[in-house]
Amino acid sequence: MLGLLLVGLLYFVFFDQKDQNMINGITVLGTYLSLLGIVISYFQIKSVKDINEKTKTAIEKSLQRLNQLVVVADLSKAIKVIEEIQQFIQQKNYAIVLIRMKDLKSILIQAKHNEEANKLIEYESFCINLNELIVDIKNMHEFTTGYKKTNLNFSKITNHLEDLSTTLTAFEHKLKNIKNDS
């Protein structure tokens, strides 16, 4: 409205009396409205861009949180599997021990390649524990197939699993606390 008054004033100041006709008036008004349209479009585009960025950030945060929840669920499952394996070792049910150890390895490898988990995990101790599990699986496989029947120390395997359980429990608590803070 203020702009319209300003344009009207400029029209009467800069245009000679003889040029102040309806056609020129419409031309000036049209030019003003075009410029106003461009300005309004600019602000609208900027506003849409801001909304898009905010939406993108919100989606990323939701995905991150979802990812964390998935990791927490996987870790809880892994800790339960460890308990199961320890019980099967006590019961000397070694075929099942091997199957569950492989399940555990699969869960841990997924967690290892999860970006969110990677940022928070005590990566070095996790990798050491995972490596011990991998070697224990190989040894358990050789034991159950009869390839190497002797010298397998089950108490050491149980200790390795206990260390792994400690690492995973600490990591799980860390993730849960992050979830509560946010």
Binding site: I134, V135, D136, K138, N139, N151, L152, I157
Partner: peptide, 21 residues
Amino acid sequence: TSRDEEFKLHLGKVTLLTDCW
């Protein structure tokens, strides 16, 4: 390792194991 006479060496992304039985 968990085998009485097996020893492992971690090298980058691989693990070397030597056992005697």
